[in-house]
Amino acid sequence: MPIMSYIQAVTQALKEEMERDEKVFVLGEDVGKKGGVFRATDGLYDQFGEERVIDTPLAESAIAGVGIGAAMYGLRPVAEMQFADFIMPAVNQIISEAARIRYRSNNDWNCPITIRAPYGGGVHGALYHSQSVEAVFANQPGLKIVMPSTPYDVKGLLKAAIRDEDPVLFFEHKRAYRLLKGEVPEDDYVLPIGKADVKREGSDITVITYGLCVHFALQAAEKLAEEGISAHILDLRTVYPLDQEAIIEAAKKTGKVLLVTEDNKEGSIISEVSAIISENCLFDLDAPIQRLAGPNVPAMPYAPPMEKFFMMNPDKVEKAMRELAEY
């Protein structure tokens, strides 16, 4: 089985879907000739031409809105926001339009668009090239938000997003792009949107997280295993709507739950996960639910010491896991 980086899995999924279905096309800033600022669409322009790999004007609301129109018509647009931080001008199109098209038309119209965006920090990106924006969209019924943690999941979930009949936001961690490598099958597989995935079986504590933080939690779990602490790790994979069943099962399994995100703590995805556990698992818990997250400041600063202070890392996760295990 070939070993691929996280970003190669993105490119591979796009390529395979465009080969499979001529209704699939890509649009965004610099996605064509350049192949994307991160090179996620590398080679697609040469293979599929400028009509299906469209370099758009620099205008995010049009990237989303034109994609939405094409999706209503019946095409399968994959729109790229160059950075998740720059999705804000498109929020009206995504929330007022894409999310509500099926509902407001009483199932007459639908909007099968995928919107990809690189998110996350630890890359010296400062306030506007590091943010996690999923919480902005995570109380908007009609949307689905996928945030994969491994190259294998990237390929299977991106294919599922493109084939989905409803709008999907697909957030890729930009530091994971070249940091994470893994086996990716050559065959055409899709993974279910809306299903969390156990990334490590364990019995002492449960860590529930998503995206790059899954990787940090797995690293920490390896270390803690040497000390005899067994960690169960659940990767949410889809952060909206949440896989409640898997969350409850994972929480009940050990009774000690640590929730991790690199987003700001208040009102984050893990806040909702915490509420689900509180509602369903009170008598199964042996410790208060712990949340490990970024501080409540607007976003991570540029200067390395401050960036490091904000950013999640394996040491912070390990410390929180150990404390919970010892509770």
Partner: peptide
């Protein structure tokens, strides 16, 4: 007839998207 909403002008990019589909 494309479905519309209350925030004004969001339909303009949608119509452009349909026209893009016609061209493609």
């Amino acid at each position: 007839i494309l479905t519309g909403s209350s925030p004004v002008t969001t339909q303009v990019p949608h119509a452009v998207g349909v026209a893009l589909a016609a061209k493609m």
